[in-house]
Simulated assay, not measured.
Amino acid sequence: MSIQQNVLGPLSAQGVSDPYGALKNFEVIKKLGYGHFSVVYSARNRFNNVYVALKKVELSQMADAKAIEDCKREISLLQQLNHPNVIKYISHFVEENDLYIVLELASAGDLAQMIKHFIKTNKRMTEKTIWKFFRQICSGLEHMHSKRIMHRDIKPANIFVSAEGIVRLGDLGLGRFFGSKTNSAHSMVGTPYYMSPERIHEHDLGYDFRSDIWSLGCILYEMAALRSPFYGENLNLVLLRKKILSLDYAPLPANIFSHELRHLVARCLVLDPEQRPDISEVNHIAQVMYARFVEQANTANNTPTPTPTSRDDSACGSITPVNNR
């Protein structure tokens, strides 16, 4: 069976009339990023002038059937999702042994780039901005979990931002669908800094949706501290595992960030997954907190309130270092 038949099989796109169904239909503009076997470009569709993200996957470089199955799984998962805070799947096609996945474009880049900008300019995110972003991340993840899809690789580089400030979860290359009889997964995949204790453990403990909640806690912390809670210089996997399993991270400063933010981080970063809140609860907290900061800003006529971080979205404070233990 050919690579094209392997990948497209039951997942064929909309047909030959699909304006997104061939590379000649696009004007490729620039490279946005890359992975092990993939490159993502921004592109303009020649038929309707819609700007998209074009993910090119080099199938010929994949030596095993599992990698191709991963591609099929990513497309299948994307097709099941329809939410404003999840990158939208548009189409896919294969040309010259390369798979192209056409996706919604988030033109302002990703959260990792944004965090680097804050570090470079010696600024920090206001808490209102943190909640504004975090509530959208949670809303997208709640939709995924409602479809019994676990992301498994939530990290700043997979959280995309549009020019309008809309945040979208993307890159489902490691996503996993849980059938009605599936209770846990066992593959140790993901990005180590954001992997839960049960996923990074040297013994195969198995994990479920609450592993994504741990990753959310890491994201919330990183937006405040501008670094991963478990970041360390020259950490190998063994030392990182030890750091995670001992919950060795510096607390966020209480004089800058609200009790609610710090408490939610602590509740997500719990070793026992059963003790973590589910996505519905985390999302509810995020929505309530953002609404509170918006109300404060409106009451004060867009001037700073007594809460240190309650400023408008464009305002930034100077970075207060998070001291290491």
Rank of each mutant, 00 (worst) to 15 (best):
K128F: 05
A315R: 06
L174M: 14
C71S: 12
Y89V: 05
I166Y: 05
E96P: 00
S91M: 10
I3K: 13
H203R: 15
M195I: 12
C138M: 05
I130T: 07
C268R: 03
R199W: 03
Y249L: 08
G109Y: 12
I68P: 05
V294H: 04
P251F: 11
P197W: 03
V102T: 03
Y249N: 11
G317Y: 08
Q136L: 07
Y100P: 03
S42T: 15
E202C: 07
K120S: 14
I29S: 03
N158I: 00
I68V: 15
N158D: 06
F93T: 05
R152W: 01
F293P: 00
T303K: 15
L99T: 08
K56Y: 09
S76Y: 13
T191Y: 09
I200H: 05
W131K: 00
Y231I: 08
S258D: 11
R325F: 14
S139P: 00
G109F: 11
Y34P: 01
A43K: 06
N324D: 11
M114A: 10
K66D: 15
L172I: 09
R276S: 04
L32P: 07
G165P: 08
F133Y: 15
G9M: 10
N48D: 15
G21S: 13
Y100H: 02
V86Q: 06
M1N: 08
F178Q: 12
G170M: 03
H284G: 11
I279S: 02
F177A: 14
V270F: 04
V94G: 08
N283I: 01
F257G: 03
Y41G: 02
L78G: 09
A67P: 01
S42D: 12
P321R: 10
A291F: 02
S314F: 09
L235N: 08
M150C: 08
Y41T: 09
D208A: 15
I219L: 14
F230I: 07
F93Q: 09
I166F: 10
S2A: 04
K120T: 12
H36F: 12
Y249I: 06
I87A: 14
K56L: 09
R210F: 05
M289D: 00
Y20C: 04
I119G: 01
F257E: 06
S2G: 00
S228T: 11
I154D: 07
R176H: 15
S314T: 07
N255K: 14
Q4R: 15
T191K: 07
R311E: 07
G165Y: 13
